[in-house]
Simulated scan of single mutants.
Amino acid sequence: MVKTLSKSRSSGKIFLKFFLIFLIVSSTTNVGAQEKHSQKGAPEPDLKVGERLYYGLISTGEDAKACASCHTYYTSDTINWNPSALEMAQVAADMDLATFKSHLLTPSGAMREKVHINYELTDEQLFNLHGYLTELADSGVPQKKMSINTILIFLLLGVLMAVALVDIFFTKKIKFKLIHILIIMAGLAYQGKVIAHTLIDFGRSPDYMPDQPIKFSHKVHAQDNQIDCNYCHYNAQHGKSAGIPSAGLCMNCHMVVRNGTNSGQFEIAKIVDAYENNNDIEWIRIHNLPDHVYFNHSQHVNAGQLDCAECHGTVEEMHILKQENDLSMGWCLDCHKKTNVNFRDNDYYKTFEALHKDIQEGALDSIKAADVGANDCMNCHH
């Protein structure tokens, strides 16, 4: 009887514990449901309307430019000094609606004051536009895809070339073989161009020009303001790598210069932010060699006394830096074979006594880089 009573009490305690847990879980679920319900009850921005406003499909004021005309989704090979769509979305997402309205309709800064002067948006339109930009900041810009027209033309030419080849070797319906040859040549030329540009986008190819975290123009700095290459790339004469300038070096000038002639405040503000918060600017390397290749800038710039343009092209004329040459082994070897070395007036080469003697005696009139071991395999692959 006692055992039965104790068992029943024990069972009662267990039941009571489960009942209390059930009440707690149930109340928590109800609170969560109430919170979700209250969120559902709040007005939601119409993202489609916001997108139309961004693209100018809905009027934002007389003579007002569409946001997308300045703040584009994708960059091209010509520099767009305005912040990208994603950058603007990330800025807008951190603002409340009142700040966003002020930023858009009563902007500060010479560049934005010029462009935003004609904007006239209602509070509802601002709410929808802000919602669209917030969503864009969360989702990000989708990767740019090859256009459907390019894919269709690529496939169509492939089919035509296949038909032409079948007719040449098997069916022989068309007597004029020149038609087949023209089709095959045109198809190979177009497909080759598409494939080449696709491969260039992967990097380490001529004309490779990736988007950088800050719109930096070598033309503005090196040509317009006559800043020497070695001021920023200070390690080129004495080290393996040319070096990438830190935000601190940039601030030597931008401590004073805070408003760019072309870019306004937005791009320079990124440098200031990186400097003040001790963050690195994550530049994307353009000129890059495989890991099994050894290359030393000081050997070429200091000992070889080459000008930067020999490898990098006319950088001082580039707004967007690109890879000028293919940097292949053949390209390097050819350069070594045709490039004369300043042999007489360069102490680096004074140990080559036999070659100095040949020059003095007239046996040689010049010395190429290949003559002093530049093309020895172990110099680059050791």
Score class of each variant (00 low, 15 high):
T99P: 02
A162M: 11
S76V: 13
K173M: 11
S108K: 14
A68V: 09
I181S: 11
N288A: 04
G140P: 10
Q237R: 14
A137Q: 08
L121Y: 08
I244E: 14
T106W: 02
F15L: 13
L321I: 05
P245Y: 06
G187W: 01
Q143E: 14
K17H: 05
F295M: 05
G248R: 14
W283H: 06
L129S: 03
A354E: 15
I179V: 14
E44A: 14
L126S: 02
K350P: 01
L157V: 03
S59M: 08
A247T: 07
D326W: 06
N82M: 08
S10C: 02
E361A: 10
A42R: 13
G330Y: 02
T28A: 14
F154E: 01
G109L: 08
Y231P: 10
H180C: 06
Y190L: 10
P43S: 07
L178I: 13
R285S: 10
M95C: 04
N375Q: 03
Q299S: 04
R285M: 05
I281T: 08
N128T: 02
P83F: 01
A196R: 15
E276V: 12
S102P: 06
S10W: 03
I268A: 05
G239V: 01
F266V: 07
G304F: 00
I286K: 03
T4M: 03
D94E: 15
I24T: 11
F18C: 08
S246D: 12
C70S: 09
E353A: 14
G32K: 15
Q143R: 15
R52Q: 14
L165C: 06
K172Q: 15
E282L: 09
T72R: 14
A374K: 01
Y74H: 10
E35I: 15
H218M: 12
A354D: 15
D224I: 13
D123A: 09
E87N: 10
G264H: 05
I153D: 03
